[in-house]
Protein backbone atom coordinates (compact mmCIF):
# COMPACT_ATOMS: atom_id res chain seq x y z
CA UNK A 1 0.00 0.00 0.00
CA UNK A 2 1.46 3.32 -1.02
CA UNK A 3 1.94 6.17 1.41
CA UNK A 4 -0.52 8.33 -0.49
CA UNK A 5 -3.31 5.86 -0.07
CA UNK A 6 -2.76 5.82 3.68
CA UNK A 7 -3.19 9.59 3.80
CA UNK A 8 -6.11 9.36 1.47
CA UNK A 9 -7.75 6.72 3.58
CA UNK A 10 -7.11 8.81 6.62
CA UNK A 11 -8.76 11.85 5.10
CA UNK A 12 -11.70 9.79 3.93
CA UNK A 13 -12.32 8.24 7.32
CA UNK A 14 -16.00 7.74 8.15
CA UNK A 15 -16.98 10.97 9.83
CA UNK A 16 -18.88 9.06 12.49
CA UNK A 17 -15.51 8.29 14.11
CA UNK A 18 -14.93 12.00 14.40
CA UNK A 19 -18.41 12.39 15.88
CA UNK A 20 -17.59 9.67 18.39
CA UNK A 21 -14.38 11.48 19.38
CA UNK A 22 -16.28 14.71 20.05
CA UNK A 23 -18.94 12.75 21.91
CA UNK A 24 -16.35 11.21 24.22
CA UNK A 25 -14.51 14.45 25.03
CA UNK A 26 -17.78 16.17 25.79
CA UNK A 27 -18.74 13.57 28.40
CA UNK A 28 -15.57 12.33 30.09
CA UNK A 29 -14.32 15.66 31.58
CA UNK A 30 -17.59 15.99 33.52
CA UNK A 31 -16.52 12.96 35.55
CA UNK A 32 -12.84 13.82 35.86
CA UNK A 33 -13.51 17.42 36.99
CA UNK A 34 -10.25 19.24 36.45
CA UNK A 35 -11.84 22.50 37.59
CA UNK A 36 -9.28 24.54 35.67
CA UNK A 37 -9.36 28.19 36.74
CA UNK A 38 -11.13 30.71 34.55
CA UNK A 39 -9.39 34.08 34.39
CA UNK A 40 -11.72 37.06 34.13
CA UNK A 41 -11.44 39.71 31.42
CA UNK A 42 -12.18 43.44 31.32
CA UNK A 43 -15.16 42.90 29.05
CA UNK A 44 -17.01 40.84 31.68
CA UNK A 45 -15.63 42.58 34.76
CA UNK A 46 -17.08 45.86 33.58
CA UNK A 47 -20.60 44.36 33.53
CA UNK A 48 -20.08 42.76 36.92
CA UNK A 49 -18.78 45.95 38.50
CA UNK A 50 -21.59 47.99 37.03
CA UNK A 51 -24.32 45.65 38.31
CA UNK A 52 -22.52 45.47 41.64
CA UNK A 53 -22.68 49.24 41.98
CA UNK A 54 -26.49 49.22 41.72
CA UNK A 55 -28.87 49.09 44.65
CA UNK A 56 -32.55 48.74 45.45
CA UNK A 57 -33.36 52.22 44.12
CA UNK A 58 -32.04 51.23 40.69
CA UNK A 59 -33.41 48.77 38.13
CA UNK A 60 -32.18 46.69 35.22
CA UNK A 61 -33.67 44.94 32.24
CA UNK A 62 -32.68 41.44 31.22
CA UNK A 63 -33.83 40.91 27.68
CA UNK A 64 -34.20 37.34 26.46
CA UNK A 65 -33.26 37.65 22.85
CA UNK A 66 -32.35 34.04 22.21
CA UNK A 67 -34.14 30.86 21.24
CA UNK A 68 -33.69 27.38 22.75
CA UNK A 69 -31.03 26.70 20.11
CA UNK A 70 -28.48 28.83 21.92
CA UNK A 71 -29.75 28.47 25.47
CA UNK A 72 -26.61 26.58 26.53
CA UNK A 73 -24.62 29.77 26.00
CA UNK A 74 -27.12 32.52 26.77
CA UNK A 75 -29.03 31.04 29.68
CA UNK A 76 -26.14 31.01 32.20
CA UNK A 77 -25.47 34.70 31.46
CA UNK A 78 -29.05 35.67 32.18
CA UNK A 79 -29.19 33.51 35.29
CA UNK A 80 -25.91 34.92 36.63
CA UNK A 81 -26.96 38.55 36.22
CA UNK A 82 -30.45 37.93 37.65
CA UNK A 83 -28.90 36.32 40.74
CA UNK A 84 -26.48 39.20 41.09
CA UNK A 85 -29.33 41.71 40.85
CA UNK A 86 -31.48 39.77 43.33
CA UNK A 87 -28.57 39.72 45.76
CA UNK A 88 -28.32 43.51 45.58
CA UNK A 89 -32.14 43.88 45.60
CA UNK A 90 -32.06 45.50 42.17
CA UNK A 91 -35.44 45.04 40.44
CA UNK A 92 -35.21 43.08 37.19
CA UNK A 93 -37.57 43.60 34.27
CA UNK A 94 -37.54 40.68 31.86
CA UNK A 95 -38.56 40.90 28.24
CA UNK A 96 -38.48 38.62 25.21
CA UNK A 97 -38.08 39.77 21.63
CA UNK A 98 -39.82 36.82 19.94
CA UNK A 99 -42.52 34.47 21.18
CA UNK A 100 -40.21 31.49 21.56
CA UNK A 101 -37.73 33.64 23.49
CA UNK A 102 -40.35 33.90 26.20
CA UNK A 103 -39.85 30.19 26.93
CA UNK A 104 -36.25 31.05 27.77
CA UNK A 105 -37.34 33.80 30.12
CA UNK A 106 -39.65 31.37 31.91
CA UNK A 107 -36.88 28.74 32.11
CA UNK A 108 -34.43 31.25 33.58
CA UNK A 109 -36.71 32.53 36.32
CA UNK A 110 -37.89 28.97 37.08
CA UNK A 111 -34.26 28.00 37.61
CA UNK A 112 -33.42 30.93 39.87
CA UNK A 113 -36.55 30.41 41.96
CA UNK A 114 -36.45 26.62 42.05
CA UNK A 115 -35.77 25.28 45.58
CA UNK A 116 -33.66 22.53 44.01
CA UNK A 117 -31.21 25.09 42.65
CA UNK A 118 -28.27 25.65 44.97
CA UNK A 119 -28.59 29.22 46.18
CA UNK A 120 -32.18 29.81 45.02
CA UNK A 121 -34.43 32.75 45.83
CA UNK A 122 -37.79 32.09 47.43
CA UNK A 123 -40.54 33.27 45.14
CA UNK A 124 -43.39 35.40 46.42
CA UNK A 125 -46.00 35.62 43.62
CA UNK A 126 -47.65 38.98 43.01
CA UNK A 127 -51.02 37.97 44.42
CA UNK A 128 -49.60 36.66 47.67
CA UNK A 129 -48.29 39.94 49.04
CA UNK A 130 -51.23 42.09 47.99
CA UNK A 131 -52.03 42.94 51.63
CA UNK A 132 -48.60 44.49 52.05
CA UNK A 133 -48.99 46.59 48.91
CA UNK A 134 -52.41 47.71 50.05
CA UNK A 135 -50.81 49.05 53.23
CA UNK A 136 -48.75 51.30 50.99
CA UNK A 137 -45.41 49.75 51.91
CA UNK A 138 -42.96 50.26 49.07
CA UNK A 139 -39.49 50.13 50.62
CA UNK A 140 -37.98 46.71 50.03
CA UNK A 141 -36.68 46.18 53.57
CA UNK A 142 -40.08 47.14 54.93
CA UNK A 143 -41.78 44.75 52.52
CA UNK A 144 -39.57 41.92 53.77
CA UNK A 145 -40.18 42.88 57.40
CA UNK A 146 -43.96 43.01 56.86
CA UNK A 147 -43.89 39.69 54.99
CA UNK A 148 -41.88 37.95 57.68
CA UNK A 149 -44.07 39.51 60.38
CA UNK A 150 -46.96 37.62 58.78
CA UNK A 151 -45.20 34.41 59.81
CA UNK A 152 -43.36 33.67 56.58
CA UNK A 153 -39.92 32.16 57.02
CA UNK A 154 -37.14 31.96 54.49
CA UNK A 155 -36.62 28.27 53.67
CA UNK A 156 -33.25 26.60 54.28
CA UNK A 157 -30.84 27.15 51.44
CA UNK A 158 -32.69 30.17 50.07
CA UNK A 159 -30.55 33.25 49.58
CA UNK A 160 -33.44 35.67 49.90
CA UNK A 161 -36.97 36.57 48.87
CA UNK A 162 -37.99 37.44 45.34
CA UNK A 163 -41.17 39.51 45.35
CA UNK A 164 -42.91 39.47 42.01
CA UNK A 165 -43.64 43.04 41.07
CA UNK A 166 -40.89 44.42 43.32
CA UNK A 167 -37.86 42.28 42.58
CA UNK A 168 -38.83 41.04 39.17
CA UNK A 169 -41.45 41.51 36.47
CA UNK A 170 -42.00 39.01 33.67
CA UNK A 171 -42.98 41.36 30.87
CA UNK A 172 -42.40 38.80 28.17
CA UNK A 173 -42.86 39.03 24.44
CA UNK A 174 -44.23 41.88 22.39
CA UNK A 175 -44.03 42.06 18.59
CA UNK A 176 -41.86 44.47 16.56
CA UNK A 177 -39.52 44.57 19.48
CA UNK A 178 -37.41 47.41 18.15
CA UNK A 179 -40.47 49.62 18.34
CA UNK A 180 -41.32 48.19 21.74
CA UNK A 181 -37.90 49.34 22.94
CA UNK A 182 -38.60 52.78 21.54
CA UNK A 183 -42.02 52.78 23.14
CA UNK A 184 -40.54 51.85 26.50
CA UNK A 185 -38.31 54.92 26.36
CA UNK A 186 -41.60 56.71 26.95
CA UNK A 187 -43.60 54.24 29.04
CA UNK A 188 -43.06 50.63 30.03
CA UNK A 189 -46.67 50.20 31.08
CA UNK A 190 -48.07 51.25 27.71
CA UNK A 191 -46.04 48.51 26.04
CA UNK A 192 -46.78 45.99 28.75
CA UNK A 193 -50.10 46.68 30.48
CA UNK A 194 -49.91 43.14 31.90
CA UNK A 195 -47.13 40.71 32.67
CA UNK A 196 -47.21 37.19 31.29
CA UNK A 197 -49.17 35.99 34.31
CA UNK A 198 -51.89 38.56 33.68
CA UNK A 199 -50.87 40.80 36.60
CA UNK A 200 -51.46 44.50 35.92
CA UNK A 201 -48.02 46.08 35.66
CA UNK A 202 -49.44 49.46 36.70
CA UNK A 203 -49.89 48.07 40.21
CA UNK A 204 -46.31 46.86 40.50
CA UNK A 205 -44.08 48.91 42.83
CA UNK A 206 -41.11 48.52 40.49
CA UNK A 207 -43.07 50.17 37.71
CA UNK A 208 -44.08 53.04 39.96
CA UNK A 209 -40.42 53.74 40.57
CA UNK A 210 -39.22 53.04 37.02
CA UNK A 211 -41.86 54.19 34.58
CA UNK A 212 -39.78 54.18 31.45
CA UNK A 213 -36.38 53.06 30.21
CA UNK A 214 -35.14 56.53 31.10
CA UNK A 215 -35.49 55.52 34.75
CA UNK A 216 -33.70 52.22 34.26
CA UNK A 217 -29.97 51.80 34.82
CA UNK A 218 -28.93 49.02 32.48
CA UNK A 219 -30.12 46.41 30.06
CA UNK A 220 -28.44 43.08 29.59
CA UNK A 221 -29.40 41.66 26.23
CA UNK A 222 -28.80 37.92 26.16
CA UNK A 223 -28.84 37.42 22.48
CA UNK A 224 -28.46 34.70 19.91
CA UNK A 225 -29.38 37.01 17.03
CA UNK A 226 -28.97 40.59 15.90
CA UNK A 227 -31.61 41.77 18.37
CA UNK A 228 -28.87 42.93 20.74
CA UNK A 229 -28.04 45.66 18.23
CA UNK A 230 -31.60 47.00 18.54
CA UNK A 231 -30.88 47.81 22.16
CA UNK A 232 -27.83 49.80 21.13
CA UNK A 233 -29.59 51.55 18.28
CA UNK A 234 -32.96 52.25 19.87
CA UNK A 235 -32.17 52.57 23.57
CA UNK A 236 -28.50 53.49 23.89
CA UNK A 237 -28.48 55.99 21.04
CA UNK A 238 -31.88 57.47 21.81
CA UNK A 239 -31.73 57.90 25.59
CA UNK A 240 -28.23 56.83 26.58
CA UNK A 241 -29.32 53.65 28.40
CA UNK A 242 -26.23 51.59 29.33
CA UNK A 243 -26.32 48.32 27.42
CA UNK A 244 -24.46 45.13 28.31
CA UNK A 245 -24.14 42.30 25.83
CA UNK A 246 -24.46 38.62 26.60
CA UNK A 247 -24.04 37.15 23.18
CA UNK A 248 -23.23 33.78 21.66
CA UNK A 249 -19.59 33.12 20.83
CA UNK A 250 -20.37 33.12 17.11
CA UNK A 251 -21.54 36.72 17.34
CA UNK A 252 -19.14 37.97 19.99
CA UNK A 253 -16.29 39.00 17.71
CA UNK A 254 -18.61 41.23 15.67
CA UNK A 255 -19.36 43.53 18.58
CA UNK A 256 -15.89 44.56 19.70
CA UNK A 257 -16.33 47.90 17.91
CA UNK A 258 -19.29 48.67 20.19
CA UNK A 259 -17.17 47.97 23.26
CA UNK A 260 -14.42 50.28 22.09
CA UNK A 261 -16.84 53.12 21.35
CA UNK A 262 -18.42 52.70 24.77
CA UNK A 263 -21.84 52.02 23.22
CA UNK A 264 -21.74 48.72 25.08
CA UNK A 265 -20.42 48.72 28.61
CA UNK A 266 -19.21 45.13 28.48
CA UNK A 267 -19.76 41.81 26.83
CA UNK A 268 -20.06 38.20 27.87
CA UNK A 269 -19.08 36.19 24.83
CA UNK A 270 -20.37 32.63 24.84
CA UNK A 271 -20.11 30.10 27.64
CA UNK A 272 -16.70 31.43 28.59
CA UNK A 273 -18.15 34.89 29.28
CA UNK A 274 -20.86 33.39 31.47
CA UNK A 275 -18.26 31.28 33.30
CA UNK A 276 -16.28 34.42 34.11
CA UNK A 277 -19.37 36.03 35.62
CA UNK A 278 -20.08 32.90 37.66
CA UNK A 279 -16.52 32.93 38.99
CA UNK A 280 -16.89 36.53 40.14
CA UNK A 281 -20.24 35.79 41.78
CA UNK A 282 -18.73 32.92 43.72
CA UNK A 283 -15.53 34.75 44.67
CA UNK A 284 -17.57 37.61 46.09
CA UNK A 285 -19.92 35.34 48.03
CA UNK A 286 -22.97 36.24 45.97
CA UNK A 287 -23.64 32.62 45.03
CA UNK A 288 -22.52 29.60 47.07
CA UNK A 289 -20.87 27.99 44.04
CA UNK A 290 -20.23 28.40 40.36
CA UNK A 291 -22.83 27.04 37.99
CA UNK A 292 -23.26 25.30 34.66
CA UNK A 293 -21.08 27.60 32.55
CA UNK A 294 -18.03 27.10 34.73
CA UNK A 295 -18.60 23.33 34.96
CA UNK A 296 -18.72 23.20 31.17
CA UNK A 297 -15.33 24.86 30.74
CA UNK A 298 -13.39 21.61 31.27
CA UNK A 299 -15.21 20.06 28.35
CA UNK A 300 -14.63 23.22 26.38
CA UNK A 301 -10.88 22.89 26.97
CA UNK A 302 -10.80 19.22 26.00
CA UNK A 303 -12.92 19.75 22.89
CA UNK A 304 -10.80 22.67 21.69
CA UNK A 305 -7.67 20.58 22.02
CA UNK A 306 -9.28 17.75 20.07
CA UNK A 307 -10.47 20.06 17.31
CA UNK A 308 -7.01 21.66 17.04
CA UNK A 309 -5.59 18.15 16.76
CA UNK A 310 -8.10 17.41 14.01
CA UNK A 311 -6.96 20.52 12.14
CA UNK A 312 -3.29 19.59 12.55
CA UNK A 313 -3.74 15.93 11.55
CA UNK A 314 -5.99 16.90 8.66
CA UNK A 315 -3.36 19.32 7.37
CA UNK A 316 -0.50 16.87 7.83
CA UNK A 317 -2.38 14.23 5.89
CA UNK A 318 -3.32 16.75 3.23
CA UNK A 319 0.21 18.02 2.66
CA UNK A 320 2.05 14.74 3.28
CA UNK A 321 -0.26 13.06 0.82
CA UNK A 322 0.60 15.75 -1.72
CA UNK A 323 -3.02 16.67 -2.30
CA UNK A 324 -2.15 20.36 -2.37
CA UNK A 325 -0.36 20.00 -5.70
CA UNK A 326 -2.03 16.96 -7.19
CA UNK A 327 -5.48 15.96 -8.20
CA UNK A 328 -8.47 16.65 -6.06
CA UNK A 329 -8.99 14.32 -3.19
CA UNK A 330 -11.78 11.89 -3.92
CA UNK A 331 -14.74 12.00 -1.59
CA UNK A 332 -14.70 13.35 1.91
CA UNK A 333 -14.12 16.92 0.89
Amino acid sequence: MSAVSIWERMLNIDRRWIFLGIGIVSVVPFFLRFGLPVVTTDEVESIYNYVDSLGSEDAIFVSFDFAPGTQAENMPMAVAVIRHAFHNHVPVFMTASFPIHQTMMISAIDYVLNPQTEGFYQNVPFGEWERIREKGITDRDEIVAAWEAEGNELPDGALGWAFEGRDYALLGFAPVFNLVILGMTNSIETQYPQDINGNPTGEMPMLHEHKSLREVDMVLTCSGSGVCVWWVTFAREKIGLPVAFGVTAVMATDYYPYIQTGQVLGQMGGLRGAAEYEVMLEENGITPSTDKAFTGMDVQSAAHILIILFIIIGNIAYFAGGFHKKRLLKGGR
Binding site: S26, T70, A72, A249, V250, G296, V299, Q300, A303
Partner: peptide, 9 residues
Amino acid sequence: MGRISLLIG
Protein backbone atom coordinates in the same frame (compact mmCIF):
# COMPACT_ATOMS: atom_id res chain seq x y z
CA MET B 1 -16.23 27.52 20.86
CA GLY B 2 -19.91 28.33 20.49
CA ARG B 3 -20.80 25.05 18.79
CA ILE B 4 -19.04 23.05 21.48
CA SER B 5 -20.86 25.05 24.17
CA LEU B 6 -24.21 24.07 22.68
CA LEU B 7 -23.22 20.41 22.89
CA ILE B 8 -22.07 20.91 26.48
CA GLY B 9 -25.53 22.20 27.32
